[in-house]
């Protein structure tokens, strides 16, 4: 079989990918900023913890729906604009757009609707499920992009890198919370990791979003220049 020739990720333009990257980055930034703002207020005692929860839950739910729909639409548009393996990749990636929608409702879904037995550190489990819902499709997407035929070299390397970024930002916070609450409570080293993991959580959507933007950039440059001379 003839080796497939390398071509740009999508045709005719990379707009859908750019928009997707931008949307994800903006969503990540917004969640980070709003979350910091509220948590700062709460930690200083300016709002009660109850008020904090109520507002975060409301914001989470609202932003989640908007983001979820937007992501879904953009993923599908990307899939349509692409061909072959890339199309499959973005189609699978669309599943990840369920994650923002679910993040505010995870506990209710798991414990009330599905009737899982409640447990110590149940919110860690709920958080883990939501994260998995985002991370798994994204990882598959990047794997396909990294290994599929006919993809520009720069995109491959970036996708490879992105796989690790998604895995790290997804699982490091979960690892830290499990350590802190279930395995080694009181350990000061774990305490410092909590600090780091707070920041890592903010990067969960921002870094993949930037990744998409970069992918679009590399692919667009490739499309303009043609196969590297």
């Amino acid at each position: 079989m003839a080796k497939k020739s390398v071509q740009a990720l999508m045709r005719p333009s990379h707009l859908p990918l750019i928009l997707l990257g931008a949307a994800m980055t903006v969503y990540g930034l917004t969640m980070a900023l709003v979350g910091s703002w509220f948590s700062n207020q709460a930690m200083r005692g300016l709002i009660t913890a109850g008020a904090y929860r109520a507002r975060m839950a409301a914001f989470d739910a609202a932003a989640g729906i908007v983001a979820g729909l937007l992501f879904c639409a953009l993923f599908i548009w990307c899939a349509v604009s692409a061909r072959g393996g890339v199309r499959v990749a973005f189609a699978i990636g669309a599943v990840a757009s369920l994650a923002p929608v679910l993040s505010a409702r995870a506990e209710e879904l798991l414990f009330s609707r599905l009737g899982l037995p409640t447990m110590n550190a149940g919110s860690v489990l709920a958080g883990a499920v939501t994260t998995l819902l985002f991370a798994l499709p994204m990882v598959i997407l990047f794997i396909l992009l990294a290994s599929g035929p006919g993809i520009p070299a720069g995109c491959r390397w970036l996708s490879l890198l992105s796989i690790f970024i998604v895995l790290a930002t997804a699982f490091f916070p979960i690892y830290v919370t499990v350590l802190a609450f279930l395995i080694k409570p009181g350990d000061p080293a774990v305490g410092r990791m909590i600090e780091v993991s707070s920041q890592v959580i903010k990067l969960r959507y921002i870094l993949p979003g930037l990744s998409f933007l970069l992918l679009a950039g590399i692919s667009a440059r490739f499309a303009r220049r043609g196969p590297a001379a």
Binding site: G35, S36, F38, S39, A42, M43, R44, G45, T48, A49, Y52, M56, E107, N120, A121, G122, S123, V124, G127, P173, T177, A180, F181, P185, G186, P188, V190, G191, I194, E195, S197, S198, I201
Partner: peptide
């Protein structure tokens, strides 16, 4: 310090079980 971290985990990471520390040593 550990209590601080637990409260931090509640607000910055959404670990709901940490509410016990917030309800005692938190600002309110």
């Amino acid at each position: 310090q550990w209590r601080y971290r637990i409260i931090q985990a509640y607000f910055e990471q959404g670990v709901k079980e940490a509410w016990v520390e917030v309800a005692t040593n938190g600002p309110n």
